[in-house]
Computed example of a mutant assay.
Amino acid sequence: MKDAEVEMAHAATGPAVGFLYPGHSAEDDYPRLESMLSSDIRLPLVHTDIGEDAHRVDALLEMGSATRLAAGVAELKVRGAQAVVWACTSASFVFGWEGAQEQVRELSQTAAIPASSTSFAFAHAVRALGADRVAIAATYPEDVAEHFTAFLKAAGAEVVAMCGSGIITAAEVGTWGREEVLRLARAGDHPDAQAVLLPDTALHTAAYLTDLETELGKPVLTANQVTVWEGLRILDRPLARPNLGTLFTTA
């Protein structure tokens, strides 16, 4: 049996949310999250060509272009994806609220299935938690993080604090472990924030979700976590999983 036929046979075994993931950094969070879901839902992932690995607005606009996203759609469809999420925050929010909406509209039209992105995943997750005031703990340079602040404000959230870490490349972010992630979250927290957001999908967080919320004593939303949650939401297959944080237990 050919590889494509094997994939199609596997695709028939259950529902699947597909993810378009830029480059290589923390993509191993997705099989980990799939395992943590303990369900029949599969999370196939296809890498997109990122061009230049840089948290810089011009590079991010190119990274999130319709052409780059469209290139991975066919493989996800072969692998049985019934919904697709652009698993990148920065290369969606830099387009602004309207531009990010157009990005997912084009992706949905190309794939002929429901689509979303990590930026909208954060907006929907914040709303689902009922968190009016949030803090942002970003790996990005502050000028890029300001675009995420503006995006959340357009979604109706009040950003009470924002800190950027000045990291330029996803490759560097992908090397961070538990201590760096916890340090980032602590640095970004604020007493008035009802939730803390860690917006980079290049950051490994799946293994630390419980630790993060225990450390801060409040809901913590991380990029790969909310991306999977968003995929389940648009697939209309919500799951309650305490090991995946407050979002998966109360939203």
Rank of each mutant, 00 (worst) to 15 (best):
D3R: 13
A4M: 09
E5C: 05
T13S: 13
G14V: 11
F19G: 02
G23P: 05
G23F: 07
D28S: 09
D28N: 06
D29M: 08
Y30F: 15
P31Q: 09
E34F: 06
M36V: 09
L37R: 13
L45N: 12
T48V: 09
D49P: 01
D49N: 05
I50Y: 04
I50M: 13
R56T: 11
L61R: 07
T67Q: 14
A71K: 13
G72P: 12
E75N: 14
V78P: 04
V78W: 02
C88A: 12
A91G: 15
Q101R: 13
V104Y: 03
T110D: 07
A125L: 07
A125H: 05
V126W: 01
A128R: 09
R133I: 06
A135V: 14
I136D: 09
Y140G: 08
E142T: 14
A150D: 12
F151L: 10
L152N: 03
E158S: 15
V159T: 07
V160H: 00
A161D: 09
C163F: 02
T169R: 14
E179N: 14
E180R: 04
E180F: 03
E180Y: 01
G188D: 00
G188R: 00
D189R: 12
P191A: 04
P191D: 04
L197M: 14
T201I: 03
A202C: 12
L203D: 02
L203F: 07
A206Q: 02
L221T: 01
Q225P: 10
T227W: 00
V228M: 08
E230R: 12
R233D: 03
D236H: 12
R237I: 00
L239E: 08
R241K: 15
N243C: 10
L247Y: 05
